[in-house]
């Protein structure tokens, strides 16, 4: 059996990925400090409350109460770093050509469904892929659009009069706040699935996001095996 070192993730992408981790963490945490001061959101069917954002015990457990001023300060300081890191990432993927691996094409949505079936153990064979599979392409491109959405809805509720047209674009002030919040819940959902997939994909894949390279084993069949998250 032959092992080959395959350089997978450029250094820049690894940096942007890992810098984003604490930055997004701070944005979500400080966002929750702000949200506590007025937390009316819930999903309900008729009178039956399905999910409440959030139950009191959660605010208490995470020490999110009565910290609005602190939350706003963190949010409006770190928003710049969060935005810059995102812009650098997009700029880099664009200039380096890495976007070719990331942008979904017209086959991606059908293939992504096959990936989902495969990952759930329903379908035996995963579709052929390059650096990222179709589900990854959609997820990783989508989360960048979500980031853009967070910046714009953030601006819409941060300066709703100076940028009234942005606020209008998102259906008004209260609507922009709901979308801003929903996108945050989207990140948390993304995070959960992402972590599960990273665990599933294993060490080789995780190492590639830190060290940049993948090890490809060529078995007797001559077929390469590669797992990704």
């Amino acid at each position: 059996m032959k092992r080959i070192i395959d350089n997978k993730h450029p250094l820049a992408i690894r940096w942007f990925h890992w810098v984003n981790f604490p930055l997004l963490g701070i944005m979500i945490w400080s966002g929750l400090l702000i949200y506590w001061a007025y937390h009316p959101y819930k999903i309900q069917v008729g009178d039956w409350v399905l999910v409440k954002f959030f139950p009191d015990w959660l605010f208490i457990a995470l020490k999110l109460r009565r910290r609005l001023a602190e939350g706003m300060a963190w949010h409006f300081v770190f928003m710049w770093l969060f935005m810059l890191n995102g812009l650098f990432y997009v700029g880099y993927t664009w200039l380096s050509g890495e976007w070719r691996y990331l942008i979904p094409d017209r086959h991606s949505f059908r293939e992504a469904w096959d990936v989902v079936l495969h990952d759930l153990g329903i379908r035996k064979i995963a579709p052929l892929q390059t650096k990222y599979n179709a589900a990854q392409k959609i997820a990783y491109s989508g989360v960048i659009l979500m980031g853009l959405g967070s910046l714009l809805t953030g601006l819409a509720i941060y300066k709703p009069i100076q940028f009234a047209w942005v606020t209008w674009l998102f259906g008004g002030y209260t609507s922009a706040r709901v979308i801003h919040f929903a996108l945050t819940m989207g990140y948390l959902l993304f995070f959960v699935v992402h972590i599960l997939q990273v665990i599933r994909a294993g060490w080789n894949n995780f190492r590639s996001m830190v060290a940049g390279f993948d090890v490809i084993d060529y078995g007797n069949t001559g077929q390469s095996e590669r797992t990704d998250a």
Partner: peptide, 28 residues
């Protein structure tokens, strides 16, 4: 009540906000 650096950045945010503050920008 806020760390010094935060006050500095918030001051910067204010300076930026003042740039596009206009009497032509009206609340809907």
């Amino acid at each position: 009540g806020l760390p010094k650096t935060f006050r500095t950045v918030l001051g910067g945010n204010e300076a930026i906000a003042s740039l596009f503050l206009s009497h032509n920008h009206l609340a809907p």
